[in-house]
Simulated assay, not measured.
Amino acid sequence: MRRFFATGLALILGLGLGPARAATVEVVVDGIEPGAGTVYVALCQGGLSEAECRNGQDVPATGRSQRVVLTGIEPGAYAVAAYQDLNGNRRLDRTGLGLPLEPYGFSGEMGRARPDFARARFVLREPGIALRVRLTRALPPR
């Protein structure tokens, strides 16, 4: 009986049935055009393409700055991508050359061009991280 109990306890400890590891990412998005559309914030893993930026949240663009909190995120390496959907079509509109027509931004360094994942990346550990993303325009508004 004692051997069964010891084996069962070892199995439970080995399975890691302790508390789940999760963290919070708080993003303050600056540079919003108030009252125009929705602001989308996404966590990206491994790259900055749409396919790699699936976990996110959207908020109404009610002020020049908005706070978005993503919870229950596994610790790891991420980047944040954000954009303001001015016309409500739920996507970042682009020119024929691929330049964004709506305000956009990334975590990390921001220049005129989209950074690569390595420059936008941060390491998320428990309990979480707070960061800022500033939206900018590649082209002046029409």
Rank of each mutant, 00 (worst) to 15 (best):
residue 7 T to S: 10
residue 7 T to Q: 04
residue 7 T to I: 14
residue 8 G to N: 01
residue 8 G to A: 12
residue 12 I to E: 01
residue 13 L to M: 06
residue 14 G to P: 04
residue 15 L to V: 00
residue 16 G to S: 11
residue 17 L to E: 04
residue 19 P to D: 09
residue 20 A to V: 10
residue 23 A to D: 06
residue 23 A to F: 07
residue 24 T to L: 07
residue 24 T to R: 13
residue 25 V to S: 12
residue 27 V to K: 04
residue 28 V to W: 03
residue 28 V to S: 09
residue 28 V to N: 08
residue 31 G to H: 11
residue 31 G to V: 02
residue 31 G to S: 12
residue 32 I to L: 10
residue 34 P to G: 06
residue 35 G to I: 07
residue 35 G to M: 07
residue 35 G to R: 06
residue 37 G to N: 03
residue 38 T to D: 12
residue 44 C to Y: 03
residue 44 C to Q: 08
residue 45 Q to K: 15
residue 46 G to N: 13
residue 47 G to P: 04
residue 47 G to T: 06
residue 48 L to K: 03
residue 49 S to A: 13
residue 49 S to R: 11
residue 50 E to R: 08
residue 50 E to P: 04
residue 51 A to F: 02
residue 52 E to G: 05
residue 53 C to N: 05
residue 54 R to E: 14
residue 55 N to P: 00
residue 55 N to S: 14
residue 57 Q to M: 15
residue 58 D to L: 14
residue 59 V to F: 12
residue 60 P to D: 09
residue 61 A to D: 10
residue 62 T to K: 15
residue 62 T to H: 13
residue 63 G to E: 14
residue 63 G to C: 02
residue 63 G to N: 15
residue 64 R to S: 15
residue 66 Q to S: 14
residue 69 V to H: 06
residue 70 L to V: 05
residue 70 L to R: 08
residue 72 G to I: 02
residue 72 G to L: 03
residue 73 I to Y: 00
residue 75 P to R: 01
residue 76 G to S: 03
residue 78 Y to P: 06
residue 79 A to P: 08
residue 80 V to D: 05
residue 81 A to S: 15
residue 83 Y to K: 01
residue 84 Q to C: 04
residue 84 Q to T: 03
residue 86 L to N: 05
residue 86 L to M: 11
residue 86 L to A: 08
residue 87 N to T: 01
residue 87 N to C: 01
residue 88 G to C: 06
residue 89 N to R: 02
residue 89 N to M: 01
residue 90 R to E: 13
residue 91 R to V: 07
residue 92 L to I: 04
residue 92 L to K: 00
residue 93 D to Q: 04
residue 96 G to K: 03
residue 96 G to D: 11
residue 97 L to P: 00
residue 99 L to N: 10
residue 100 P to R: 07
residue 102 E to L: 06
residue 102 E to Q: 07
residue 102 E to R: 01
residue 104 Y to T: 06
residue 104 Y to L: 04
residue 104 Y to Q: 11
residue 106 F to Q: 04
residue 109 E to P: 00
residue 110 M to K: 09
residue 110 M to F: 00
residue 110 M to P: 00
residue 110 M to I: 10
residue 111 G to F: 12
residue 111 G to Y: 11
residue 118 A to R: 13
residue 118 A to E: 15
residue 118 A to F: 00
residue 118 A to Q: 13
residue 119 R to H: 02
residue 119 R to D: 13
residue 120 A to V: 02
residue 120 A to K: 08
residue 121 R to E: 10
residue 121 R to Y: 03
residue 123 V to K: 05
residue 124 L to D: 11
residue 124 L to M: 03
residue 125 R to M: 08
residue 125 R to W: 00
residue 126 E to A: 11
residue 126 E to P: 10
residue 127 P to W: 03
residue 127 P to Q: 08
residue 128 G to E: 07
residue 130 A to E: 14
residue 132 R to V: 08
residue 132 R to Q: 13
residue 133 V to P: 13
